[in-house]
Design a protein around this nucleic acid. Structure first.
Lengths: 243, 243
DNA sequence: CAAATTTATTTGTATTGACAACTTTACCAA
DNA sequence: TTGGTAAAGTTGTCAATACAAATAAATTTG
């Protein structure tokens, strides 16, 4: 089972094993996993090593500990999709509403200019835009800029029907390490009014987002224009970042 | 210095001591703190206890470790204030703009009713409201609801000039473990228009926020109405949550 | 003097052991 | 049957010890 000669430390291997048991349903949400002493006996490890493994999973939000009682599996938390709508489209799908996202501008490399807030100003970046409809009504317009070197070759991939965060993680091994976002009320110009089916001059929620990757201060910059008369822009906060 | 008979565990006391040394500048950003063995000798503690203290500070983003080299103080990161404006007021202070926050409604216990999105609906909760001015112009109106049991006795504390997150942490040992927020465009009614010095019917950014504490699904619910014509509502994302 | 090697230092992993603090279960008396 | 107490079980804190892996400093060699 656990291999002391492998380069991966034992506590890590155990965390992965327990994580797999959670994922497979062997340790169901709400259930209590074996005690630290039991796990130590079962795996032939010391209790501090068990605790290190469990500490990891607790920090990832998979488990919680109750002193005197045991260690319990938490309900799965929805992972925040920072590339787009966050929890919003998932909650709409739960309600059975049709969510449809279509590319407006296919992804291509361009030189960004005259956009002071865009971190790629004066440089090349990949750009694409898309429109999301909710039960047929356009509700979200997005423009995304991707770091040219980090996402080298992405224009050859098919973006339709794929989550950009999945692509970033699976193809480029990239996970955002943090970022910044801003919110303001923007007034719809003629183009955006047409795309979002509102009157010119209507207020739209304008969101800008800067995503940081570990070695890159800004790897993704996105701008979203939302019709909050049609839906509520919701977002999960933090998760485990404040424990 | 450290008191083994105090109810606070030694690793916690040490973390606080090191944290205070960082804050006072004794351990400057970029500098290396004493080694784990040195700290153990200096405080008469075992190394695992030292490591527990340092682990805490590393997770809070104050320190970083380099194997074979030592433990270093990180540049201060702006801590997200989830109780209010996030990074926004700090960035305004940096620009030398006067930020003034005043209580409108003093904190008191009330029974919440007829507010479907308020998690305290049908229950008692502490409530207070405040107005923030930027260079004299009202820009942010807030209403905050606090869990009656979690914040027992808070009405006796002076809230003026104190950050609610500092109070929550120092007085109640509470840190949010996560939460949810929503954004939409609201239309200013007469009251809000007066308070925020806009015309009735003007669009305002309406933010709702639900903060979770470890044993309490919702400990703090807040509603904010922001004039984004006067400032940009910005927010740091995640930080260490995705590492 | 520069490069290579060795030594010292420091963090990373892992162990056995002990006691404290809290929760749960079992048992007994009213 | 209910309430109180004791025992058992479990996590939380803390220790001493040991070796591995990486980095930094010192020493040696060309």
């Amino acid at each position: 089972m656990l291999n002391p000669n492998a380069p991966i430390p034992l506590y890590r291997q155990l965390a992965d094993l327990i994580s797999a048991r959670i994922r497979s349903g062997e340790y169901a949400p709400g259930s209590r996993i074996p005690s630290e002493h039991q796990l130590a006996a079962a795996h032939g490890l010391g209790r501090p090593t068990i605790r290190q493994a469990l500490d990891m999973l607790i920090r990832k939000g998979l488990l919680t500990r109750r002193r005197g009682s045991g260690t319990y599996v938490l309900e799965p938390q929805q992972e925040v999709d920072l590339f787009s709508l966050d929890g919003t489209s998932a909650s709409f799908r739960k309600k059975g509403l049709a969510v449809e996202t279509r590319l407006l501008t296919p992804i291509h490399l361009l030189r960004v200019s005259g956009a002071a807030e865009n971190p790629f100003d004066g440089q090349q970046a990949y750009f694409f835009s898309r429109l999301t409809r909710l039960a047929g009504t356009p509700v979200l317009l997005e423009g995304l800029y991707l770091h040219a070197q980090l996402f080298d070759g992405i224009q050859h991939l098919d973006l339709e029907g794929r989550s950009l965060s999945a692509i970033a993680e699976e193809k480029y091994y990239l996970r955002p390490s943090g970022g910044k976002q801003s919110f303001r009320i923007a007034i719809a110009d003629a183009d955006k009014a047409t795309l979002l089916a509102v009157s010119p001059g209507s207020p739209l929620l304008a969101v800008q987002r800067w995503l940081t990757f570990s070695q890159t201060p800004c790897g993704v910059f996105s701008e979203l224009w939302c019709r909050t008369d049609q839906f509520v822009f919701t977002q999960t906060i933090g998760g485990t970042g404040y424990a």
